[in-house]
Amino acid sequence: MTSPSTGPKPGPGPAGAPGRGRRPGLRPGAPAGLRTRWWVGWAFAAPALAAYAVFVLWPMVLTAQYSLYQWNGIGPSTWVGLDNYGRVFTDPELLDTILNAIRLIVFFSVIPVLLGLAIAATIRRIAASRLAVVARTVVFVPQVIPLVAAGITWSWLLSSDGLVNQLLSAIGLGGVTRAWLGDLSTALPAVGVIGAWVQLGLCTLLLLAGMSRIDPALYEAARLDGAGPLREFFSVTVPSLRQEIGVCVTVTVISALASFDIIYISTQGGPGNSTMVPGLEIFYQAFSDREIGVASALAVVLMALVLLCVLPVQRLTRERP
C-alpha cells in the first residue's frame, strides 16, 4: 500500500531531462503514436509486473493455500480448513508472539519517532555549526552497520559484565545490573532498545529532510506572533511534517511487527520464549517443526495485522488537499 508509483506528480527524472545525446527531432511522430496505442504502457510495465506476480503475488497465494492444510513440506497434505487459524488464535504460545510484536512497536516506532523529532529539531537549530554534521552522522551510523555486527556488539554491551552494567555500577546503580538479554522480564525491552537504536537514524534523517522543506516564512511569522521555540515546534514543525511522520511510523511499525533479524541475532526468541515474535515463530514452525500449514496461517495473520496497523496511519497522515 506504500507503492511509490502512486504519486501523480511528475518528477525531474531522466525522462524529463533534455539532451543526453538523444535528439527529440529525430522521431517527431513518436509521442503521439505512443498515446494512441494503449498497450505500450502495459508492455513497459510487463517485466516488472511479471517479476512482482512471480515473486510476490504467487507466493502470497500459495501461502494462503498452504494455511488451509496440514503439511510437513514433503509428504502428502491434509485439508484442515480454518483449523490452523484456530490454533493461531487459541494457542497461547502463538498468540503471545503477536502480543510481543505489538509491544515492540513502542521501541521500534514510538521512541524513534518522538526522539527523532526532538533530535532533528535540535540539529536544525544548530544547522550552521559543525556539530550538526557530527550529530547527523552519529545518529545515522546504526543504519550503516550490518545488523549482525550490531547484534553481537549489543549482546556484549548488555551482558552481565558489559559496558551497560559497568556504567550503571559506576553511578551507584549496581543493584539493578543483570544479564539484560538473559532475564525474562528485561529481554524484550533490551531487544527493543537495540531496535530503537537502529530505527532512530532513519527517522531522524527523514524528519530532518522534511524540515528543510518547511517555508522559513512560517517560522518568521510565528516568531512575530510571539511564539517561543516550543510553540514553533508544535505549531509549525510537527504539522508540516505530517507526511514524513507518516512514512516513519509506517516503516517502523512494519519493522516492529515483522521483526526477525535483530531478535534472531540477539536472543533467538529466548529466554523462555520471552522475545518470540511472529516472524521468528513462522520460521521455526516451517523449518524446525515442519508445520507449513500453521506457519502459513500465522504469516497470513501477520500480514493482516500489518495492514490493519498501517492503513489507518496512512489515512491519518495523508496531506489534506
Binding site: V61, L62, Q65, L68, W71, N72, G75, S77, T78, W79
Partner: peptide, 11 residues
C-alpha cells in the same frame, strides 16, 4: 480456486 480446485500441496 487453488485451495479447492487443485488439491493440496505435496503428496
Amino acid at each position: 480456486t487453488l485451495a479447492v480446485g487443485c488439491g493440496g500441496p505435496g503428496g
